[in-house]
Write a protein that binds this DNA or RNA. Sequence first.
DNA 1: TAGTGGTCTAGACCACTTC
DNA 2: AAGTGGTCTAGACCACTAA
Lengths: 262, 262
Amino acid sequence: MAPKWRELADKLAERIRSGEYAPGQQLPHIRDLVEAGEGSKSTVHAAYKALEAEGLVTSSRGHGTVVRQQAPLKRLGIARYDKAKWRDGDEVAFIADRVASGRAYKRGEQTQSVSRVPAPAMVAAAHGLPEGAEVYARARLVKEGDQPTHTLTSYYRPEHVEGTRIVDPAPGPAGRGGGFRVLYDAGYDIDHMREELFARIPTTEEATLLQLAPGEWVVELHRTTYTADGTVVEFAIGIHAASRFAWAYDFKVPDSAQEAKQ
Amino acid sequence: MAPKWRELADKLAERIRSGEYAPGQQLPHIRDLVEAGEGSKSTVHAAYKALEAEGLVTSSRGHGTVVRQQAPLKRLGIARYDKAKWRDGDEVAFIADRVASGRAYKRGEQTQSVSRVPAPAMVAAAHGLPEGAEVYARARLVKEGDQPTHTLTSYYRPEHVEGTRIVDPAPGPAGRGGGFRVLYDAGYDIDHMREELFARIPTTEEATLLQLAPGEWVVELHRTTYTADGTVVEFAIGIHAASRFAWAYDFKVPDSAQEAKQ
DNA sequence: TAGTGGTCTAGACCACTTC
DNA sequence: AAGTGGTCTAGACCACTAA
C-alpha cells in the first residue's frame, strides 16, 4: 500500500499527463483538497511537493500551484560548430543554433564577464599547465527570453588571446563570429574537439542562477578545442538545465586493427 | 532565513562532504536529533528526506540512515565500439569496457530477453518502417555486481537477423562478439553511428528496475547504427542511472563550405 | 485584508529489522 | 520486544501576493 501522499500525487500526475489539467492551469488549492477529505494539510502538501520535485508543477505562495509547461528540448549537434557560420558569416555559434531553430536572437540574452584567474585543477590539466597558472576565463550566462538555460565558461591561455577582442570585457558575444573567430584571426584555426558530458545534482548557486525547479539536475559539459597540431586553444565548461537539452553525435565505428595497418 | 529543515540538511551535508561522516557510516538517529533540540520529528525527517533526494544518504526502516558511497563515474568513449574488439577477438563491447576499467566480468551480470514486437513509433521512424511493423527487440539489464546500472534494448529488422544467434533467446550476450558480430557474420558490416542523449525523470518502473535513489534522474541514449550504404541495422535505447556515467565524443569541427567545394 | 503555499509542533500509529 | 525510519493529523503561525 503506497502512502496516501504518494497515491494523491499519482492521481494528480495522471490527470496532468492526460491533459485534464492543462499546462498553465491551476491545481486545486491545498485547503480544498483537505476539505475534500484527501488528507491533512501536511499530507496534501507532501503530494504537491512530490509533484514539484518531479517537474510537473510549480508552486508559489500567494499564487497557487500551476501545471508547468515543458519547454521543448533543444537539440545540439556538432553542426553548431560549423566553420562556415563563424568564419565566413558573422553569426556566433550559439546564435546560429537559434536561427536554425526558428527563434529570433534578442539582445541581452547573453551576459558575459572576462577575468584573468588562476586555473582550477581541471582547466590546468586540459591546457597542460601547472595548477594555478593564470588563464583568461570568459563566463557567459545564456538565456532564452527571461529563462536562463545554461552557463558556459571558456578558459584560454593568455598567450593565445592577449590583445584580442576576447579580453575586452564588453558585454555580448566576443565580436563578429565569437571566440572561435577571434582565435582564427589570431592564427589558431580550430580543427577538432572533444566533448565530455555527465549529469549531476546542481549546487545551490547553480540552482539559483539557472532558476532550476526543485529536484532538477544539470548536465555538465566539458569541451576541449584543438588546432590541427593538437594544441589546446580553448577549454570550456557548460552547465545546462538537464530538462532542456539533448545532444547528438555522429561518428565512424573505430577500427584499431585497420588503423594499425595504415 | 532558510527553513529549519533546510539548515539542518545543509549542516549535515557539509559534514558528509568534509568526511566527518564517512561513506557507510550511520547518521544520528532522527529521535536523537529531536532530543538534541534540532526540531520536531517531522522537521528532522524533512531534512533527512532532502539529503536522500540529493543522493547523499539512504534511509531504511529498522536500520537507520547511512552515508552513500558514490560509485565512480564510468566513462564511455566511442572506443568501446572498436571493431577489433568484437570482430577479431571474442569480447563483447560492453565487456571490453569492463576489462579496460579493471573490473572482472562476472556471469549473470547481464540478463537478456528477445521478442518479436510491433515497432514503437520512435523505433519505426529510426528504421524507416511504418509504425507497428514487426521488429525484434533484444532487451538487456546490465549490472555491476548486484547493482543494476542501465538497460539497453536493441531493435532489429527481421530480415537482418532472422535465423541468427540474436533471435535465440538464450541468456547472456548474443554469442561470441555480441550483436555487432552477428550482424557482421550476416553480411552487415557496421560503419557509422549516431548517438543522441538527454536527461529526464525516470518512470516508476525504471526507478524500481535500476534501484534508483529517490530524486535520481536517468539519461536516455538513442543509438542508431548504419552500414556504409546508410542502412540502419540497429536502433537501441538505453536508460542509464544518471549519476553513474559520463560520455565522451571526439569529432572534427565541421566545415560545410569546405565540403561544398569537394 | 483575504487567500495562497510553507513551516513547525506534539503525539499517535505503522512497517520493518534485529535481537 | 525494542528500536529504527515513515506516515498522518490537527492546529498554530509565517511569508508572500493580489485586490
